[in-house]
């Protein structure tokens, strides 16, 4: 029987053909989905995907771009926000 922990949908199932010729079910953890921009919803470029344990191994610069609003907003949206900020400071 399949052990209870594999029944969760965070595991993906795949059929694997063994060298002996038999078929075997393998369970692998799914990767989390890509990060999206908080305002326009586009996929964010340069943001690493992985489970917490995998992300911990990466350095901060490997996880996210080096830019204000890096992991939250896409580059066009962050530019709009910075322009807004600059104009507010003027006024």
């Amino acid at each position: 029987m399949v052990s209870g922990r594999f029944k969760s949908r965070t595991y993906a199932r795949s059929q694997v053909r063994t060298p002996g010729g038999g078929n075997v079910l393998r369970h692998t953890l799914r990767k989390p989905k890509k990060a999206h921009c908080a305002s326009c919803g586009n996929v964010l470029a340069g943001v690493a995907r992985g489970r917490p344990a995998q992300l911990k191994k990466l350095s901060k610069t490997q996880r996210v771009p080096t830019r204000p609003y890096a992991g939250t907003l896409c580059s066009p949206c962050s530019r709009k926000k910075l322009i807004e900020k600059a104009r507010q400071q003027q006024a």
Partner: peptide, 10 residues
């Protein structure tokens, strides 16, 4: 000016 792109943005 204020930079709006790059790592110096803002």
């Amino acid at each position: 000016c204020v930079k709006i792109a790059g790592r110096d943005a803002g």
